[in-house]
Amino acid sequence: MRVVTVVIAIAAGILILAGYYFSPLKDVQTLLLNWALIFVGAAALVGVFNLLFVHADKIRRREKGSVYSAFLIVFMVATLLFGIILGPEHATMKLMLDAIILPVEASLMGILTVTLLYAAIRLLRRRVDVMSILFLLTTILIVLGSATLPFGDMPLIGTTLRPWITQVLALGGARGILIGVALGTLTTGLRVLFGADRPYGGN
């Protein structure tokens, strides 16, 4: 059975890859991709139900924090029902988004701001080395260059230093990362096609 799984995965990958280079295989590629979309959509639905069952079991066993699981299940079911019934464009749904989803996530993002500031302040207290100091100075420059003064951009920092840091230093690093990511993606794909990696086999 494991061999069959490997054969199906490799065959599908080769067909989709070949669809990029061979026109007759584009239809096959499209077909396979459509099937994959269906599976992914179903997997998302399975994930939702799995989350529901996990929290329900937590409530059943009366574990610590099961109250929050109850809230989660209630609102999840309600949202699901409202969405299915009313539609996402309905005002109720918009209200739920505006009143619950957005503020909650925004608040979490705000807490992240305070935490980052606190970490930056105590960075040199924990480790004092060149990289820590350089990192802190870079952050200060970027932050300072991004802001403006009442009279305009921050001179020199905002007009020269910050653009240079972002356009040269950061950009160079970003390119390197992207190239590495691309190469890694290519290698991983080939390994899957050759059967060296089996992320789908469970082993």
Partner: peptide
């Protein structure tokens, strides 16, 4: 960051 860093 600047002040706190120096202090730290």
């Amino acid at each position: 960051m600047l002040g706190g860093g120096l202090w730290s």
